[in-house]
Nucleic acid binder design. Structure first.
Length: 447
RNA sequence: CGGGGCGUGGCGCAGUCUGGUAGCGCACCUGCUUUGGGAGCAGGGGGUCGCAGGUUCGAAUCCUGCCGCCCCGACCA
């Protein structure tokens, strides 16, 4: 993409309404535009990141054996009357009436919807277990939306639902999602710590929040050092095998948010206690037969007995993650995208557009990178060097290729790594081979 | 939902207390000079001051109502 024609309205000044760093940077980088309180349009740069996050979430769901589908945003109130939540959910639910006077709602989540689908088609124990998910926009009419996409009213969520015959099966499904979440966040360049959680209005008696560590996180968290240090992606996971030991590896150590903070338990850790700020990016629940019983979702067992389905649900805040990643990865100059989600992998900075040498070299590099499938944004705008450097740092692409008259005479460019700031002067050829080296495609080093 | 604050060119703000027909910086357009970390000079365009009523000879400014947005707290992916 040529920056001269790319729609990327960056701004030099901080917007007045944005309080936290991710919100400020997303607005300054031209990633989002607020439509109304807690509702945002995603501009091209932001949408590219959102899609990357979504893609990784999807890949890890698929890998865990979860099947993707898509349910609607608008749901019938009748379904929610069956589960009892139509009255219970309160004002957070956006209620709509259609032209015939039917009560509808913009879905805040999809337990009822998926249960209705499931009960209609699945009649035999032979068809279990099943794990289904979708990635769809949700609406929760938060009293006070804030922090940009971190707590919007409209947000993109991945929600999965498991159906099993008994507790043991439900526990296996829960463990699959537990492990896949660890992998998902690690691939996004984040360190996520699972913490025991309240189940809230969704109900149930087994639940974990996944909290990523970020200096500017909303809540204070406490955990054992091991949880911050142990490896996530190093070993291959067999989702058909026994995942209990891996879950045990993450749940046997102390970890708590400030609400559940326990002075004594924390003190017992001594020097192993890590105190940090965190942001919730995922939440998993086992809730047994709460919805299946209310909505009569049953199958026939081997002896023709009626079995009420055991269910769980598993959510990842996809749009929230974009903000959360920035909270976890930025500096004074702007965003520092992890490679896996960066809107482009490389930014080319042509320091002197109009100079035949610079133009020619930049075009060559641009073409070569694109040819090798490397997503590249070329700043060919007629601006001063300082403005271009500032914009490039602001939008945080992992690599910058800086081409100016100084080096280009000798066929050399500067290669800059955004995260470390390391710069190196190289021949164009070596720069290209460095940049087109095999990229991480879900491999072991996602941080 | 309780408490507080703010709405003035695209962005950030001053002007409001004390009423007299709107200003600054950035951005934008034109020209010249500049050109490796947000240039300089000159010229130029753009605002019914959130909306609706009211007071007044006259309202961005005073009064009333409404709308929108932000912050703190309680709640949440």
């Amino acid at each position: 993409m040529r920056l001269s024609s790319f729609f990327m309205p960056t701004s030099r000044d901080d917007p007045a309404e944005a309080q936290i760093v991710s919100h400020r940077l997303m607005l300054r980088a031209g990633m989002i535009r607020q439509a109304s309180a807690g509702i945002y349009s995603w501009l091209p740069l932001g949408y590219r990141v959102l899609r990357n996050v979504e893609r990784i979430v999807r890949e890890e769901q698929d890998r865990a054996g979860c099947q993707e589908m898509l349910m609607p945003t608008i749901q019938s109130a009748d379904l929610w009357r069956e589960s009892g939540r139509y009255e219970g959910y309160g004002k957070e639910m956006l209620r709509i009436e259609d032209r015939h006077g039917r009560d509808m709602l913009y879905g805040p989540t999809n337990e009822e919807q998926i249960t209705e689908i499931f009960r209609h088609y699945i009649k035999s124990y032979r068809e279990l277990p099943k794990l289904l998910y979708h990635i769809q926009w949700k609406f929760r009419d938060e009293v006070r939306p804030r922090f940009g996409v971190m707590r919007g009213r409209e947000f993109l969520m991945k929600d999965s639902y498991s159906f099993d015959l008994d507790y043991e099966g439900a526990r296996r499904s829960y463990n699959k999602m537990f492990v896949s979440y660890l992998r998902t966040f690690a691939r996004l360049g984040l360190r996520a710590i699972p913490m025991e959680a309240d189940t809230g209005p969704i109900g149930g008696d087994l639940s974990h929040e996944f909290i990523i560590l970020a200096g500017t996180g909303e809540s204070e968290v406490y955990c054992h050092r091991v949880l911050v240090e142990q490896d996530v992606l190093g070993t291959d996971v067999d989702y058909e095998g026994d995942l209990a030991p891996e879950v045990e590896r993450w749940t046997s150590h102390y970890a708590a948010t400030d609400e559940k903070f326990d002075e004594k338990e924390a003190a017992a850790l001594g020097d192993d206690l890590v105190r940090a700020r965190g942001i919730e990016v995922g939440h998993i629940f086992y809730f047994g037969t709460k919805y299946s019983r209310a909505m009569n979702a049953t199958v026939r067992g081997p002896d023709d007995e009626e079995i009420v389905l055991e269910m769980g649900s598993y959510g990842i805040g996809v749009s929230r993650l974009v903000g959360a990643i920035i909270e976890a990865s930025h500096d004074d100059d702007g965003i520092v995208w992890p490679d896996a989600v960066a809107p482009f992998r490389v930014g080319i900075v042509n320091l002197k557009p109009g100079d035949p040498g610079c133009d020619g070299a930049c075009e060559d590099i641009y073409r070569a990178l694109r040819g090798s499938g490397c997503e590249t944004l070329m700043d060919d705008r007629a601006l001063r060097a300082g403005a271009k450097f500032a914009d490039m740092d602001l939008i945080g692409l992992p690599w910058q290729v800086i081409a100016g008259p100084r080096g280009i005479g000798n066929g050399r460019v500067e290669l800059k790594r955004r995260d470390t700031g390391a710069r190196e002067e190289l021949s164009i050829e070596s720069a290209l081979s460095r940049l087109t080296a095999p990229a991480d495609a879900g491999g072991p080093t996602a941080s």
